[in-house]
């Protein structure tokens, strides 16, 4: 219990720090959103009045407090470019990004885990060479290229897949999948190529340990040895890796949404940065980081579920 409370406090502190940094960075960044909005022709009076209207003339700490309050109430101000509430924009786009990201995570989990176990069970020189080449390849492939290859060879050949746009889940599950599977695969494939090796390594490490010999000496079948004992023990390092993947997957969506023309947060982020739409950028960055920090918090909690020793710390 103490462990969970400590993690929770850590989580809150991290989020608070993230909010300060996010807010601070946009104060330092060069470029004035007001000037961007009004264009180069605008005179001082116009600029000043807009500044007042947006609340940009007030002291920084007041602006920050306002913004933090907004984070909790869902009022993140108005987007400068779209002239509509940031929260509305996010609510529109967030489901798309979350869908792609979670689908990608599920694919990584369900492929990398069994694949890692499989190769750990039959380790030999030939498969080791093949596997490390696969890993090298997976790390080297740029995701935009992989995305295009998938569009050309799968998207164009199978009617099921749509290579453009997004169908909400509420409209049709098959429709949503038809637009999401390829982008999710684009993110997942390089991740799988790298991550299954972690799975393999941690399982191989566990296989060497004394307790495995004890379980075998009890005459239990290999299935129990592997899937009950070794797997649960190796989940601790594997979970860490999957916590890290989340951040990479979320970052991956930004590029993939461009390739597949998905109306997600990533796309919104790119356009809003080029327009210096600071309220929007801040909102997006904040939500993405909170998601990632939250997932790591969940991972920490899961640690303690798996490993009783961690509950003591």
């Amino acid at each position: 219990m103490l462990y969970i409370i400590r993690r929770l406090v850590l989580f809150i502190v991290t989020v608070a720090l993230v909010s300060i940094i996010t807010f601070g960075v946009f104060q330092i960044l060069p470029g004035d959103p007001v000037k961007t909005m009004l264009g180069t022709e605008a005179d001082e009076v116009q600029i000043e009045s807009l500044r007042k209207e947006l609340g940009l003339d007030r002291p920084l700490h007041e602006q920050y407090m306002d913004w933090v309050q907004g984070l909790f109430t869902g009022d993140l101000g108005n987007s400068i470019r779209f002239s509509m509430p940031v929260s509305d924009l996010l609510m529109d786009r967030l489901p798309v990004t979350l869908s792609v990201a979670s689908l990608a995570l599920v694919i990584v989990l369900f492929v990398a885990l069994p694949l890692g176990i499989f190769v750990a069970k039959r380790q030999n020189k030939i498969s080791d060479v093949l596997l490390s080449s696969a890993t090298q390849l997976g790390m080297a492939i740029p995701s935009f290229w992989l995305g295009m290859i998938l569009i050309i060879y799968i998207g164009m050949n199978f009617d099921f897949f749509k290579i453009n746009g997004y169908v909400p889940w509420s409209e049709s599950i098959a429709g949503a999948l038809s637009t999401l599977v390829l982008p999710a695969l684009t993110i997942a494939i390089p991740q799988i190529a790298v991550k299954f090796r972690y799975v393999r390594t941690s399982i191989l490490e566990q296989m060497q340990l004394d307790y495995v010999r004890t379980i075998r000496s009890k005459g239990l079948p290999e299935k129990i040895v592997m899937y009950k004992h070794i797997l649960k023990n190796s989940m601790i390092p594997i979970l860490t890796i999957f916590g890290l993947i989340t951040a990479e997957v979320v970052a991956g969506t930004i590029i993939v949404e461009q390739v597949f023309a998905l109306p997600g947060v990533g796309q919104l982020l790119i356009t809003s940065i080029s327009y210096r739409d600071f309220p929007l950028v801040q909102g997006i960055v904040m939500y993405i980081t909170v998601t990632v920090v939250f997932i790591n918090f969940v991972v920490d909690i899961l640690y303690s579920v798996i490993d009783p020793r961690i509950r003591l710390r």
């Binding site: 340990l209 004394d210 307790y211 010999r213 004890t214 379980i215 004992h229 649960k232 023990n233 798996i306 490993d307 009783p308 020793r309």
Partner: peptide
């Protein structure tokens, strides 16, 4: 010390 599975 190491002959028992630590997570069960």
């Amino acid at each position: 010390m190491t002959s028992l599975d630590p997570v069960f």
